[in-house]
Every structure is written in C-alpha cells, then in structure tokens.
Write a protein that binds this DNA or RNA. Structure first.
Length: 806
DNA sequence: GAGCACTGC
C-alpha cells in the first residue's frame, strides 16, 4: 500500500484491489468502448505492473480533452490542477465501478473538479444531481462558490449548496450540489434511497467524523438497492484499502449479478498527487521532557537560523497556547535584538472573530509571524505564508466512557490535589511519547472528556503539509524519528469509537434500521457504548422494550435536529422540548434549548472577572441558569439584537445570533410537527387578568410575583421531563457544596460559572457534567424532589426512599 | 472560584 501514497514517485497511480487478476483488469480495457459514456473520451491509459505489491497502476498521459468552455484563464487554471491529468481515468472508473476511491493530497483539485467532470460527462442529465459532501459548513460554501465561478453560473442555480440554516439550491435547475454530510443523512429521512442523486462524492473521508462514517455505512446499504448509484470516496490517506474492503459487496448480495457486471462491485482505487511543495522533516534526537519549552526554543532557533517565512506551531489547547505566547513575548522583552522581529499570535476556536482575524492579516514588513495554534489550523483554517511548522505531536481528543470502571488503567492523570500550576507542569511532563490514550477519568460513568493524546502519522503528515503551501518548507517534529516510525499510530481512532452514540442510534432507527448492532459499520463502535445508548433512549421513552422508536415521542425526537450532536444530552433536550408542548411553555423552552446547544453565550473574561460577575447578576434568576438564559435572551431582543449591547454585557454576539437561528429552526419544526407554540408567561398573565376581570381580584405586586413563580415551576417541570436522570442532592453536612448524583451517588459540585454557585439548593438538576479537578455540574436549576417522581415514576420508583424531601 | 481540541443537524 505504501506505493499508493507515493504519488510523486509514481507519476500517476491507479490501482484496484489486489485480488483482481491482471486478465480481469485487461478485460476492463475491452469493455471500455462498450460502456464508455458518449461525449467523454476513452482514457489513453496503459496498465503497468507494480513490483512492490502487485498493485496495478494506470499511467495517464496529460489529457487532451477539453470541457467545452473555451480557454479562458479560469479554464487554463483548471487544466493546471494535478487532477486534470486523471479526468478520463476518473470518468472511466466511475462509469465502470459502483465505488471509486480517490486518494489525493491537498491541492490536487479533486473537490472542485470531479463534480464538474461528472456533469460534463452527462451524470447530471435527466433531472439527476451530482452531490459532493464535506464535513464542514465553510468548506461547502467556499467550494460551491468556486465551482459556480469556474462554470460561470450564479450560486444557487446550476451549482448550489445546502448547509444547516441555509439552502442555496433550486430543485429544478441545480445539477451540482455541495452539502455537509449531516445534511445528506437528514435528506434520507424524506428520501431514504437518495433517488435524485446519480453520483455521491464523499470528500475528506479520512477525517472519519461520526457523520461521515454513518453516511458511508448508509450509502453501502443504498447501493444494494440502487446498483446504478455511483459513490466516490475521496480520502487523503491510505485508509483507501479498508474503505475498499468495506465497499466490496458480499457474495450473497450478488446472487443475480454476474462477476463481470457493470458497474463492477469491486471498488476502484486511484491516487492523485497533490500540488504541495516538498517539506523537509526534522526530528529531535532525544525525547523532549516538556513539549511547550521545546516548542518555544524551536521557534527562537528557527528565527535565528532560517530565512524569512512564517512559523506555525501546533500545541494542544488554550492553556498551552497562552503560556507559549507569553513565554515568547517575554523573550522579546528580554532580548530585543533576537526576537524583536517576531509577531506572536494565538489561534484557537474560543478566540473572538476579531482576534482570529489577526492571524490572517498580512505579516508586516520585516516581521516574522508566529501562529501558535490548536488543531484548528490542521484542517479547518488554512494560513498562507507558513514555511515552518513546529509539531508537538499531541492534540486534544474527546473520549467517551460509557460505563464506570474501577481504575482507569490507561495512565495516571496525576496531580489532582496539587496546585494548579504544579498540576499543569506535571501534566505536560507526563505527555511523553509512550503515553497511551487516556480514557477519561475512570471514576465516573457516561461522561465525555477531553484528553491530551499523541497524534497519528496521518495527522503528522497533514501538519507538515501546512509548511509547503507557497514554497518548499520545513517541519520540526518535537519527537524522535524512531517514535514516529515505530510507535506513532498510523491513523487516529475514528470518532465513532470514542463518542456517545445516542444520537447515532436515534438517527438510524428513524431511517428504519432496526438491527443497530448488526449495522455494517466502517469501524464498529464499542458494544458498551451501544448498550448505554439504548438504555438512555429507553429511559427517556424514545425507544420501547423492543428497541423500536415510540410513537409519537420517539419519531418526533428523531425529527429534531439536535439529535445528531455528539452527546447524550441532546435527546434529553429534545424530550424537554416535546414535554414543554404539553406544559404549555414551548416558547420559553426552545429558547433555553437553543442557548444550551451553543457552546457558551458568554465571552471568556480573564482580566475583568469582577465586572463580569456583576453584569451577570443583572440577569440572574434564583431558580437557576436556564431561567437566567431566558432573561438574557429577552434582553438581547429588547436591545434590537445589538452587538453593542452584547459587548457591554460580556455576551458573545456570534453565539447569540446562533441562538436566534437555532430557536427559529426549532419553532418552524414544532409547527411542522403540528405542536403548539405556547408561552407560559403569557398564559399565566392572561389568567391573572381574567381573574381580575371576572372575580374582581385586584392586581397587585404579589400577583406578578405569583405569576413569575408559577411560570418558573412550569418551566422547571418541563426541563425535568428531559433531564430527570441528572438529579443531585446536597450532602447533608457538606460545607463545601458537595452533591451526590441520585443515579449513582457520584460526587459532584456546582460549577463556579453557575448562578447557583455558593447558593447550593438542596435539590438540583444539571444539564451536563464537566470533569476537571472535580466533577462540576454546568447549567443547574433548583428543583423540588417530588417533581422527579412526577416526571419519571419508572426511573425513580425504586429509589423513592432516597428522595424524601429535605 | 473555574476553564472547553474540532465539527455538525
């Protein structure tokens, strides 16, 4: 397989699975004329043997065919892309194989060109559509507009795109459609066989995101029912082989298909070289004791010894990055001569839009930009002008622990009771190269945690590639070559195997896949996670005893677009929304749901903690954080959705805008499901006015208080309908706010960011747990324990003795 | 009195 990757060495590489004999391949040659689509030329390809592994290559000479748009400068640019040489080979393979896997480095042009080639070859005729999926929204938008530009059409016409909150397609004219893989899965709910698509190209499949993996499994199923559908999988790494095995149809599915049928059920693999420049790799000779220090030293030494060019440093998270930025800036002050030319900038998603923007500004003359970044610069953002990459060899990854385990057994997190600084140091030192994946905390079950993890070879290559975008570059790896070769894992662990699967399960159930355990996964998720997901869904009343979706709740929950998220909390949110319809408070609850679905509505305030707390107090509600969010949302609307108002109140304007978007989507959805949108506040208000009018009850201040009080009870009951499993009670003699979860008596505390921090009500329900030096509950409301039994008698029956009101 | 890699519907 190594030969497959060596795109530069083997000018062009086209291979098929090894188990095909040469005669079979040559037979394809004979079929070419027969099955070749009119209008596209037969590829002038020659088949050659590869001595390394018996893989056959097609070496394609530069194609002479034109796509018929004349030779404008755009057209010339298109032809200069590496993928252009393979135009005919790609069309040939797609014609003859149900699945084609294209291995291509970045910059090969495959994403923008292949959909156009397919359209030119007639795959978008007769009302059919060519689809191309991307894992990220931004990529969908930018690729679509590039393709529209190249084709000289307006976006939303022949070329369109669909992402959440934005559909830029016109069903009667759109023939090339870009969309996120999540959107395509959602489209299956209305059209399970995706009948309007003739070809579906799944791009960036090597990233192995949860939705990409799910999509690939589903597409394989669809393929069996729709033999005419063509699938193209584009991947940047050698995983092509496992993809190929996965898509190879099983014998029993081919009873009626002849071995040499067209399209062939055997996937084809084609490798396309990228456009990147060579990157010289440097390793450290001895393992470094502290990657942060090492990164700082490396930056300084590059600045001393290497010619001009920006530096990109990969660290793990905000903490590390801020520390490194500080060290480098301090160094600037210590020694003006040596580093005065350095412009040091942090980059991570938590930064405000403006701060992120700094990174993209052109480097001032005579300065050298140093960007210290998380993984965000590995795939999501591309920095031009980078010539040097410093790779720490680590990144943060999410891990999910479905069941409680005694001892974590994967390594010591260490230093829990020590001072914060000391602990950080210890953590850093512990991340030597022999460290294995650390699985969360080991003490508490059903929790996801972020863990500093060694990256994979694929990631290391991707990071290095970032140095070769404008000219040959250098990559300095802060680990030894021996470690890279012998110990670093080839690929990362797919998200599917380290996530909570609740949303995945609902989604598949909604698509009519009953046997989840028997689903054909590209990478099987751990059975414990699967079992855990089924349990959670059963306890929420979303699945019945036979593990089928309940009607109507189960089906309705599946419709709500929060369920594709990656935590078990989301079906709880969905359940909360649906219950709110019965409680008559859906208007308020969808606002709460929208706020909970964005990361944080507050901007992080490092310096101005006191002012921040005071501002927050204006919105604070005694009942807890959820009600507080309602006050914030009201304030935002009253301000006319002003960004200025957000700034004054330490609120993240982008996040608030997203809250409005999500809320709109949810309200449209409830209307579509025929569920009432009601506001409990308005209802109680009406009730009091009515009492005043009929019974002459005077309206006094107390009534307004009662009104508020009643509304808050109704709201909290609706929240509990979804989150009853997350209840905790304050330990009786606890002076430090120690709570125990009712479900499993785990020790938890209210997070200091909560409005109930230090208030410590006797009973609370939380939205999520975050595990750092303690287990903290985030987003907490105070409750009456009797509401728990009322909301979930099936769940609390056996535990009733514990639930004596305090 | 603490801290959240990155996506996405």
């Amino acid at each position: 397989m190594t030969s497959l990757l060596a795109g530069n060495r083997a000018q062009s590489v086209s291979a098929r699975p090894k188990n095909l004999s040469l005669s079979n391949v040559l037979a394809y040659g004979e079929h070419m004329a027969r099955f070749w689509r009119p209008g596209s030329e037969r590829p002038r390809a020659t088949l050659v043997d590869d001595e390394e592994g018996g893989v056959l290559f097609v070496s394609a000479p530069p194609s002479s065919s034109s796509s018929g748009f004349g030779h404008s400068s755009l057209e010339r640019q298109r032809q200069r892309l590496p993928v252009f040489k393979y135009r005919d080979a790609i069309l040939y393979l797609v014609e003859n194989h149900a699945t084609t896997i294209i291995v291509g480095e970045t910059g090969s042009g495959k994403t923008t060109q292949i959909p156009q080639y397919l359209k030119e070859a007639g795959w978008a005729e007769g009302g059919r559509v060519v689809a191309c999926t991307q894992p990220r929204r931004l990529a969908v938008q930018s690729v679509a507009s590039r393709v529209a530009e190249e084709m000289g059409v307006k976006i939303g016409e022949e070329v369109g795109y669909t992402i959440r909150f934005e559909d830029q397609t016109n069903p009667s004219v759109t023939v090339i459609k870009f969309l996120t893989d999540g959107v395509l899965i959602r489209e299956m709910m209305d059209d399970p066989l995706l009948t309007k698509y003739s070809v579906i190209m799944v791009d960036e499949a090597h990233e192995r995101s949860l939705s990409t993996d799910m999509l690939l499994g589903l597409l394989k199923k669809i393929q069996r029912r729709r033999p005419e559908l063509r699938i193209i999988i584009s991947s940047a790494t050698i995983e092509a082989k496992s993809m190929s095995t996965f898509f190879q149809a099983r014998k029993k599915d081919l009873l009626h298909a002849a071995e040499d049928c067209v399209p062939s059920h055997l996937p084809a693999i084609l490798s396309v070289e990228g456009k990147g420049y060579t990157v010289e790799i440097h390793y450290v000779e001895e393992p470094v004791p502290d990657y942060l220090q090492a990164a700082v030293h490396t930056v300084l030494s590059i600045n001393d010894k290497e010619p001009a060019g920006d530096i990109l440093v990969f660290l793990t998270g905000q903490d590390d990055i801020d520390a490194a930025v500080k060290l480098l800036r301090e160094d600037t002050q210590d020694d003006r001569r040596r580093t005065s030319g350095l412009l040091v900038l942090p980059l991570y998603s938590g930064l405000s839009r403006d701060d992120q923007g700094l990174v993209f500004a052109p480097t001032p003359k005579g300065k050298r930009k140093v960007v210290i970044s998380t993984n965000i610069a590995e795939t999501s953002l591309t920095l031009e002008g980078v010539v040097y990459v410093v790779d720490s060899g680590f990144s943060k990854q999410r891990f999910y622990n479905p069941m409680a385990i005694e001892e974590d057994g994967f390594g010591e997190r260490g230093g829990r009771r020590r001072g914060k600084e000391e602990e950080k140091e210890e953590k850093r030192r512990n991340h030597t190269y022999s460290q294995q994946h650390t699985m969360g905390d080991g003490e508490i079950s059903d929790i996801e945690s972020l863990v500093v993890t060694p990256i994979s070879k694929a990631s290391a290559r991707q990071r290095a590639g970032r140095a070769g975008r404008i000219r040959p570059g250098k990559c300095f790896r802060l680990y030894t070559e021996e470690y890279f070769l012998k110990e670093m894992p080839t690929e990362g662990i797919p998200e599917m195997q380290r996530s909570n699967l609740v949303s995945c399960v609902i989604q598949l159930k909604a698509l009519g896949i009953d046997n989840i355990l028997g689903f054909d996964w590209l990478a099987s998720p751990p059975p414990e996670a699967m079992v855990r997901a089924l349990e959670v869904l059963y306890s929420l009343g979303i699945l019945d005893e036979d593990a089928k979706l309940t009607s109507p709740i189960g089906y309705q929950v599946a419709e709500i677009p929060l369920v594709l998220a990656l935590t078990s909390i989301d079906p709880m949110i969905s359940k909360m929304i649906l219950s709110a319809c019965n409680f008559g408070c859906s208007e308020e609850i969808i606002t709460i749901a929208a706020v909970l679905s964005v990361q944080s509505i507050w901007v992080s305030m490092w310096g101005a903690q006191k002012e921040f707390d005071e501002v927050k107090l204006h919105f604070a509600a005694a009942e807890g954080d959820h009600i507080t969010y309602l006050n914030v949302y009201k304030g935002f609307l009253n301000s006319g959705k002003s960004s200025q108002w957000c700034y004054k109140n330490y609120l993240n304007y982008q996040a608030m805008k997203k809250v409005v978007d999500v809320r709109d989507q949810l309200s449209r959805l409830l209307r579509r499901l025929g569920l009432a949108l009601k506001s409990c506040e308005k209802d109680t208000q009406a009730f009091i006015l009515l009492s005043h009018w009929i019974f002459r009850v005077p309206i006094v201040l107390e009534f307004c208080t009662i009104l508020y009080f009643v509304a808050c009870i109704i709201l909290r009951k609706a929240i509990i309908a979804g989150f009853f499993a997350n209840s905790c009670h304050l330990e009786e003699y606890s002076h430090n706010g120690l709570y125990k979860t009712v479900r499993s008596s785990e020790e938890v505390y209210i997070h200091p960011s909560s409005v109930l921090f230090r208030v410590n009500p006797k009973w609370v329900v939380y939205h999520s747990l975050v595990s750092t030096n303690k287990h903290y509950m985030r987003n907490v409301i105070a409750i009456d324990p009797s509401w728990l039994i009322e909301a979930a008698p099936h769940f609390y029956q056996l535990r009733a003795p514990n639930l004596a009101p305090c």
